[in-house]
Amino acid sequence: HMTFVALYDYVASGETDLSFKKGERLQIVNNTEGDWALAHSLTTGRTGYIPSNYVAPSD
């Protein structure tokens, strides 16, 4: 899985969403939902949907 870094803070709007903080590292599990991606946080160990425009690929 590619690793991504959060560009902004995001507060989950539902139970299936994943909250994260700017700078948090995430792995995209499934990116077939258009503007949303299923992601796993390497920081918190949690998995949920995130807005895909809130993250960018990290080196």
Rank of each mutant, 00 (worst) to 15 (best):
H1I: 14
H1T: 12
M2W: 10
M2N: 11
T3R: 04
V5T: 09
A6M: 06
A6S: 05
A6G: 04
A6R: 00
L7A: 05
Y8R: 09
Y8D: 06
Y8L: 08
Y8T: 07
D9R: 01
D9L: 06
Y10I: 02
V11N: 10
V11A: 08
V11M: 09
V11D: 10
V11S: 08
A12W: 02
A12E: 04
S13Q: 14
S13W: 09
S13L: 11
G14A: 12
E15G: 08
T16R: 14
D17T: 09
D17F: 15
L18Q: 03
L18K: 02
L18A: 06
F20D: 00
F20S: 00
K21M: 09
K21D: 05
G23Q: 01
G23L: 02
G23K: 01
E24W: 02
E24T: 01
E24A: 00
R25F: 15
R25K: 13
R25C: 14
R25T: 14
R25W: 14
L26E: 00
Q27L: 15
Q27S: 08
I28Q: 01
V29W: 13
V29D: 06
V29P: 06
V29K: 08
V29H: 15
N30E: 13
N31R: 12
N31G: 14
T32R: 10
T32M: 14
T32H: 11
T32A: 12
E33N: 14
E33M: 14
E33S: 13
E33H: 13
G34D: 08
G34M: 07
G34K: 08
D35S: 10
L38M: 09
L38D: 01
L38P: 01
L38V: 05
A39E: 01
H40P: 00
H40D: 02
H40L: 14
H40I: 15
H40M: 14
S41H: 06
S41C: 03
S41Q: 04
S41F: 02
T43E: 14
T43A: 09
T43G: 05
T44F: 01
T44P: 01
G45Y: 04
G45H: 07
R46E: 09
T47C: 09
T47P: 01
T47Y: 10
G48T: 01
G48R: 00
G48Y: 04
G48E: 02
G48S: 05
G48M: 02
Y49I: 08
I50A: 02
I50S: 00
P51D: 05
S52I: 15
N53V: 09
N53A: 12
N53K: 13
Y54F: 12
Y54R: 05
Y54K: 05
Y54A: 14
Y54C: 09
V55K: 03
V55C: 06
P57L: 13
S58W: 15
D59Y: 13
